[in-house]
Amino acid sequence: MTPIEVISTARSPVTDPHVHVWGWEIPVYLFLGGLTAGLMILSGYALWRGRRNPRPEASFALASSGLFGVGLVTISLGMVALFLDLVHKPYVWRLYLTFEPTSPMSWGSWILLLVYPVLALGVLLDPPRVLRERVPAVARLRRLADSDRARRWFGLVSIAVGVGLGAYTGLLLSSLGARPMWSSSVLAPLFLVSGLSTAAAFAHWVTPVPEESEQLARLDNALIVAELAMLAFFLIGLVSSTEVHARAAALLLGGPYTAVFWVGVVGLGLVVPLVIQSLVVTRRVAHTPLAPILVLLGGLVLRFVLVSAGQISHWSRL
């Protein structure tokens, strides 16, 4: 029988009405981590296919040091957010005294340690002239970076580390079974595809090469469609599962997060940019930064909604 009233003395002004676990820092980190992962995968793929930056020096074309540099900035901002979220900050080094195979967060902390050298090497593919002239080691590395073989291998490594980073940001949430909204294995591929989509949008926005704009707009359209499908799988999975999972889905289907999810994420974040970019690739409107900016904001809002609503979803009866 469902209780009609539950009074608990566990509630205090600190925990009432819900145990508030994560604030703005975690969604921001998950967004920036996903964006970085997407940039690593896109650039890694371009390198693997043997693409060379048509304009050396710091431009932001695919496989350029510029995009890897952006990755360094976005992941570092994400790490700052992650660090701000920690309550026991002076103990952060404890992450690196152990490896806990059952903890996605432990995997993530070690993956982040791989992300930095890969991004740094990516920047050194076409290092800025100042660095090349002042540091002899960078000039030597440049000879290696000119080798097609080395570039292809580096591309594969970048893809592998990027997939690890992007998937872990979703797995992190989906491993926490106590929050029914998160206990969906779709979250890992959803966050990976969303990360790729935001990265394609960003690259589309900044690339100086017209052919790349075209390719990236088409790619992003495909990724947006994939993301819409994954969101549908996510909701269908929850609705058709147990009562608590269906109740978690109801937070997005009529509950308090309905408007922000359907308008902010699905509408403005996915459908509207998909429509704009479909018109762009069929030559009916010119390339506009509006669509990529909407995709980027949509990716951020998606993570805010899922982190916040996920925390509210729970197993108990009331």
């Binding site: 145990v19 676990v21 994560w22 309550v87 026991h88 103990y91 079974g177 106590a178 108990s316």
Partner: peptide
């Protein structure tokens, strides 16, 4: 050893 990441708080039903 706790860094205050709060994953355990979120993991407890």
């Amino acid at each position: 050893e706790c860094i205050g990441c709060k994953a355990c708080v979120a993991s407890c039903p």
